[in-house]
Design a protein around this nucleic acid. Structure first.
Lengths: 369, 369
DNA sequence: TTGTACGCGTTATCAG
DNA sequence: CTGATAACGCGTACAA
């Protein structure tokens, strides 16, 4: 167990034990101590100009002396808003979602709002307790990111509509139905088209796609778009070139192994598009292990343009979905929606292909057809 | 600009515009509608057994019909606690801090607490507004992670002591002074010792250290420990083998370039210890670019045991600081401290070396001395 | 320029 | 078993 390996010991002599939790100092304490009314204290705190300078100074002195901080709970109760935005998403440890959160946090902060993160499980219904929490803590807006529109999320529209009675809602995820909330997402068509066209232009004809999971709607959508793109270019859409699996590096390894070991060598694809960079990472490892040279024997493209892409060997070409921009827009729209009628709308951002060496493009490489 | 590349359009006909924000439904509404007192509603909500089943059911029906959710602000005001823990750290995008946060989040959730993340700048004073926020929102405890004890953090003890009047405080960071709060950290000695001894055992004699920054105290501490370890082993502690720099992959590239280009080839180290895995990532790239073979011409060890370590080429040996365990302990101790006198103490966790191929150990490689 | 008094939504105490 | 009612800490009319 953990504690076996930990050295733990008291750090202070008993005499220096920390002070007991103070009773909270309230606006009444300040008022009494400064010999004014609570209203005046409020005026001083909020910078109301109609306070005699002498009084102001006197009160301020007491405030400082007592290190008085107004209770946010009481303020919220009074004002009915919390100056806080909620961000709901799976796994903050996933770099894609991390970018979204970080950007939302920064944009909110720049506007004087706090951001509160709630993590939920992908592909499960929105927990009722979460909705209660968001409403109960009077969030001023909420952003859902990730597979929010997944068919597996039963009771989704109930949850959303309940939420919408209390705060503006934004989703960062391609909507399945006509959404009646702010709805921001990247263009999944360009996300598939870009890498396929790039590979095609480089001379590749047998292109495979690994990753994602049919259970999550916008993931399978990615797969569909990929197939459509192949057909549009008259390329073979062999089902053997489309391997479903998870989202992490290990899934990438397994997917490659499964796909290639099931195919005679002459039918092997010459290029692989991975659902995300993590999978590409695993794929690269597996491919090398199988003795393939990259990009000569196999080209590979990832997705998310993560920080490690320039550091794989070879550096990984990747699709950038611009998660930070999506999040920034979401926060802005939420803030606008707060004042005035919320107008539901959809916003779509094109993807961008970041070309590095994993397809040989930089090397002037051209696959012979 | 962003909006140029975005397609934005209204999604719904005017008639289906979302319902206006409802006036909040309160406990009074429920009481009135159910023909009982607010006290009874509270009893039903909190599951108080002393309610006649018939009454309970009647009230519950109204609650469901109105989708009533108690206001957390009001509850907090009444109870004086928020069932929320704050986590204060730099950059959630840094995987090390990410692990800490994620583990804290999970442990808190398992105990019925919410977790609220606040990001602050490394090496800057704790903002007064942050302290106000934590106190104002009546957090039930706070965890500081990262270079919290850095000398550059002016006003630190004032901030901490003010905080300690209101809630238990835990830090995940080696303390510089006698701390009077819960204080949990990894053992920076083992963190330096492990990789140095490992390399020494493999026959390496010229070992270099890259990364960190003298401005951040526990970073420079890492450097010092490294030097001490070298001396203990009678290895050369050439200052040229100790390059200060940043924390990211690019810094790793630069550090390697700077160090090696300043040294005649025969004085080159045979192994490099990087401040963290990110730097190791950059170092690997730079080393390869300079034509070195890894691990034959240069061994390398990182720190943090990040997810990508198994996927570098060669797989990266790394020191695991067990951030998740630290965070878990911090949350537990905080929760204990809440009920009863907070007893300040220090807890230290040994580091662990995760051996992969980047030093050749797995290959039975032994450097000739 | 300042003070009084009420409401915000809950819970808890105390009677009944 | 149930109902008044008093806090909780603050902001804000309304008065003075």
């Amino acid at each position: 167990m953990l504690y076996n390996q930990i050295i733990k010991h008291a750090a202070l002599p008993a005499a220096e034990r920390p002070s007991p939790m103070h009773k909270k100092v309230t606006i009444y304490d300040i008022a009494r101590e400064a010999g004014v009314s609570t209203a005046t204290v409020t005026r001083v705190v909020s910078g109301n100009p109609s306070v005699k300078p002498a009084t102001r100074e006197k009160v301020q002195r007491v405030i400082d002396a007592y290190a008085y901080t107004p209770s946010a709970s009481a303020q919220q109760l009074e004002r009915g808003q919390s100056k806080t935005l909620a961000v709901v998403m799976p796994e903050i440890s996933n770099p894609y979602f991390n970018s979204i959160f970080t950007a939302a946090y920064e944009e909110a902060e720049a506007n004087g709002y706090s951001t509160w993160l709630f993590q939920i499980q992908e592909n499960k219904p929105i927990p009722r307790e979460l909705v209660d929490l968001l409403i109960g803590r009077s969030m001023d807006g909420v952003i859902f990111a990730g597979g929010i529109w997944s068919t597996a999320r039963s009771g989704l529209s109930e949850a959303l509509s309940r939420l919408k009675h209390h705060m503006p809602v934004a989703t960062i995820c391609p909507p399945t139905m006509q959404p009646d909330c702010i709805c921001i997402h990247s263009d999944l068509v360009s996300c598939s088209r870009l890498p396929v066209r790039h590979l095609h232009a480089l001379g590749h004809r047998r292109i495979a796609f690994i990753g994602g999971s049919m259970h999550l709607r916008d993931n399978s959508k990615r797969g569909e778009n990929f197939l459509e793109e192949l057909r549009a270019l008259d390329l073979p859409d062999d089902p053997a070139y489309h391997v479903d699996s998870g989202f992490d590096a290990e899934s990438g390894e397994r997917a490659v192994l499964r796909m290639l070991s099931g195919l005679e060598k002459k039918r092997w694809p010459t290029a692989i598009i991975a659902f995300n960079d993590l999978m590409a990472l695993g794929a690269i490892k597996q491919l090398k292990q199988m003795g393939l040279r990259l990009p000569d024997d196999m080209a590979i493209i990832g997705c998310d343009n993560q920080f490690f892409c320039p550091y794989t060997d070879p550096p990984l070409t990747s699709v950038d979905l611009h998660p930070a921009e999506l999040a920034q827009s979401a926060v802005r729209e939420l803030l606008v929606a707060r004042e005035g009628t919320a107008k539901p709308f959809t916003m779509m951002r094109e993807a961008t292909l970041i070309v590095r060496e994993s397809c040989g493009a930089r090397l002037g490489y051209q696959k012979r057809t």
